[in-house]
Design a protein around this nucleic acid. Structure first.
Lengths: 344, 344
DNA sequence: ATGAAAGCGCTAACAC
DNA sequence: GTGTTAGCGCTTTCAT
């Protein structure tokens, strides 16, 4: 039916070029000197049979597959997708392939997939944790498989990490609004039980209050799990109540851009002008910020750079390069667009 | 320094449990009956030494790695991320792992990465093509590696595919606007040289015109490469000119949601009300549609289902199941939100 | 400069 | 029901 031929192996090349397989191996890997004449013959045979070495077999010998594992909660979230893009480019530039696993914020999946990847003898692992449970990561690290954690820092451990200073970034955002003249600054977030990244941003908000001697006002802090990406309505309801009760700040910081945009929708719906009546600020600088009306002022995370930095750090470790700093903190930046202004 | 021990192999388990390695293999793979007693001993040893089989070695023997390759242009685009999510879930449910490659619309990368994956002896390959060049895919298919193509159909080939009917979907969208009362319906798109998916949508627009006996009016068709995701300004400029020249339709279909949202921004900027003065319709039903102001009426593609369908199709083929339909066309649906209305 | 051969960890055919 | 063994495709040590 199909004239498809078995993939040629190193043996076939040896036979074709009249040498022995180890010689073929040496010309492929340039691991020993081979005379030009034989080398040419081998190369010709390789081309002729369209031979490419079997990475699996090589991996079995060398214990390296030039493959990196990436575990993250949900590829459909733009933040992860962007970071992954940075990882992908960096890995590719150094000739590594990526294996991807999504955990959907399931801690058991995290561990299960990690083990599955280790079974594949990946050369290293990059981790976005869904929650603050790190035992499995520490286990991997202890059994000598190189790990880099993203977007989180594992205190009191030797585990390398790449992240931003979420607290400082949010405090800067607070200060930006304060310096604009705002004194009633609110905060909108998910709950942060067991999720350090979220908690750190909240701490940044609180630090901003403290620094400027403003008292914490629960009326203008919305902490609710209902405001999921697909639950714009919940955000409406939460904000509607505050508007009706006139418990509204002159400006709101948000855990993330899409929360901010949900809030903007709600404010507009209830007759408040953005930024005229209320300023709104996001976090992450997703593409969506530019498409919002008004465009969203936000805190920019260097997402692609974060990915590339982590990948290169991991590869440096794998390749035994000397790395001076294993806990890299990247800079953030406030991107001013149209959703913030001086208060009335 | 580190007390880390070599990973146990099947030999270690054999020794520990006092049997021979093939027996261990049989209890692991349940490939032959083993007496309860020995099986228990083996299982105990496995647990004790925390043994997990080396997938690489197994792959070398069995020619199967339970790994699927996915090649797509850019993971940071929500459409691909969503489809990938469907792939991931389906693959995981059937105990397969994913390898990911991004090509960034580089046709050489497509082929390079495909080959790299085949070297890894993946069990099958899923492909989003950046352009209409399929030779490398056909080559893979001919050398018997199972392939499924997404979002595109390879006419006159045996290659399985999963996609929507882009032409019909866009024509339906046209009809929706027509039935609303619109007679001047415009179209905004990227150029579609060598990109079938885009061209099919354009054809759907034209078919809608033809079906309703409306003449093609170049004044209200915008075909331009400048309107990239990060180029909101280009969209402004393109639309501004039309507004100034009063060459504006009462409704616009768009190749994709973000183009539609860019258009909405521009229209609003130039004093036109959406949907009062002009209706706007997107394509894809990204999350962003809900966050737009007004929320965007659009054509929904079943993205996760597309991914899952493709993954299951591929796995059925790999596992030798009988599949009746290798070219699956999924249904689309018009999602009505606030950006469309009857014309004034 | 090239060849022979062991062995990575596993599966599967075959023998007992 | 369990054991023996060949071999997947490759790298690498050692001989020549």
């Amino acid at each position: 039916m199909n004239k498809s031929v078995k993939k040629p192996s190193i043996k076939d090349i040896a036979k074709e070029s009249g040498v022995v397989i180890s010689t073929v191996s040496h010309v492929i890997n340039q691991t020993k000197f081979v005379s030009d004449k034989t080398a040419d013959a081998v190369k010709k045979a390789i081309k002729k049979l369209n031979y490419r070495p079997n990475i699996i077999a090589r991996g079995l010998r060398t214990k390296s597959t030039r493959t990196l594992g990436v575990i993250l909660p949900d590829i459909a979230q733009p933040f992860f997708a962007q970071v992954l893009r940075g990882i992908e480019e960096a890995a590719r530039a150094r000739n590594y392939t990526l294996i991807l696993g999504c955990t959907f914020y399931d801690i058991y999946e995290e561990e299960r997939q990690m083990n599955a990847m280790i079974d594949q003898t990946i050369d290293g692992l990059m981790f976005f944790c869904g929650y603050d449970s790190y035992d499995h990561i520490k286990k991997a690290h202890l059994s000598n498989i190189p790990v880099v954690v993203l977007d989180r820092e594992l205190k009191n451990s030797e585990i390398p990490s790449v992240l931003i200073d979420n607290k400082a970034a949010m405090q800067n955002a607070f200060q930006y609004l304060y310096d604009l003249g705002h004194r009633k600054i609110g905060f909108i977030t998910f709950p942060f039980k067991n999720q350090t990244t979220i908690r750190r941003r909240y701490e940044g908000y609180c630090a901003g209050l403290a620094k400027n001697n403003i008292e914490y006002d629960p009326d203008i802090v919305i902490i609710d799990d209902l405001m999921r990406l697909d639950e714009l309505k919940a955000t409406y309801k939460l904000i509607k109540r505050r508007v009706e009760e006139k418990k509204i700040a002159t400006a709101y910081l948000n855990l993330a851009d899409f929360l901010a945009i949900g809030a903007i929708h709600a404010f507009k719906e209830f007759g408040l002008k953005v930024p005229g009546d209320v300023s709104v600020m996001g976090f992450n600088n997703e593409i969506i910020c530019e498409f919002s009306d008004p465009p969203l002022t936000t805190v920019k995370q260097p997402k692609k750079i974060m990915g590339a930095t982590a990948a290169n750090l991991l590869l440096d470790i794998i390749e035994g390069k000397k790395v001076e700093n294993k806990n890299i903190v990247l800079e953030t930046e406030i991107i001013v667009r149209g959703s913030t202004a001086v208060p009335k």
